[in-house]
């Protein structure tokens, strides 16, 4: 493979702002994603998680702050980068993907090859990278199904396959465990870890704090568009912070599988 698949890429967002119709959805939010790690993006509804992901991927224009990736010790400003070059580095798995068009799953995954192909190229059948992405995301059996006939969980995995076909160095996911049953949630989490182990920086927005505590190397907690806390989940997700940000009671318990976070309603 080419060296781009080997390059470790870090992403740094500094003081990101996003303002729409006079309301600040992001206010000076900063984060740092390290290659090979899974970072959890946490926060209650409306705290700016989805907005943050969209600004980082470039679908929403930041009204303040800078976004840069560091590769081979060089810092590259994302704002000045061509869309295609950005798409070769950063991929996004959205929360609810709708497509009324009945595309085949393998064609949906092949869309991830767009930033790597010639402009105006038609789809390549049996692209090896797309085939590999299909296998890694575990959607081989779905490859010849039509995307619009899939369940929510299946769509989520197909979207992940499409994102992997982009061969991103930074992978963003917006609540990828939504719609999934418990086994599938664990499966998704395992997949994200596998992706990170190949040197990708993973940023995943999650609602389930216990799952985040178990999965993430680091968490970023958002509140009203601001970063409330950053760091190791065991340090960050303290009872005080959980009570403050989510209005829930949290406590760490030691069980047979190590320490875990248990969340319950505030008394």
């Amino acid at each position: 493979m080419t060296e781009t698949t080997m390059t470790a890429v870090d992403l740094t967002a500094q003081g990101l702002g996003y303002r729409v119709e006079g309301i600040d959805l992001l206010r000076g939010a900063s984060l740092h994603l390290r290659a090979g790690t899974v970072t959890g993006l946490l926060g209650p509804n409306g705290s700016g998680k989805s907005t943050m992901l969209r600004v980082v991927v470039g679908a929403l224009p930041a009204s303040a702050g800078t976004l840069a990736v560091t590769e081979d010790g060089m810092s590259l400003d994302l704002a000045g980068m061509r869309r295609r070059d950005r798409a070769r580095r950063i991929a996004l798995v959205e929360q609810d993907a709708h497509a009324e068009v009945p595309l085949l799953v393998r064609d949906v995954v092949a869309l991830g090859r767009i930033p790597h192909e010639r402009r105006f190229a038609s789809a390549v059948d049996d692209d090896p990278v797309a085939a590999d992405a299909i296998e890694r995301a575990g959607v081989t059996e779905l490859a010849d199904r039509s995307f619009d006939t899939l369940s929510g969980g299946e769509r989520q995995r197909v979207q992940l396959a499409r994102a992997l076909a982009q061969q991103p160095r930074v992978l963003l996911l917006d609540e990828p465990t939504n719609h999934l049953d418990l086994a599938a949630q664990l499966d998704m989490v395992r997949l994200l870890r596998e992706v990170a182990d190949t040197g990708v920086a993973v940023l995943v927005a999650l609602h389930d704090l216990a799952q985040a505590a178990q999965t993430c190397d680091e968490v970023v907690v958002l509140r009203s568009g601001e970063v409330a806390a950053v760091g190791d989940p065991a340090d960050v997700l303290s009872p005080a912070l959980l009570a403050d940000v989510w209005r829930v009671r949290g406590e760490w318990v030691t069980g047979s599988h190590g320490r875990a976070l248990v969340v319950s309603p505030l008394a």
């Binding site: 679908a59 869309r83 295609r84 950005r86 959205e94 009324e100 595309l103 767009i114």
Partner: peptide, 15 residues
């Protein structure tokens, strides 16, 4: 085809 998944997805695919 990329547009079919919405503006955000198409942007993320480099369009």
């Amino acid at each position: 085809d990329a547009f079919a998944f919405g503006d955000t997805a198409a942007t993320a695919l480099g369009v």
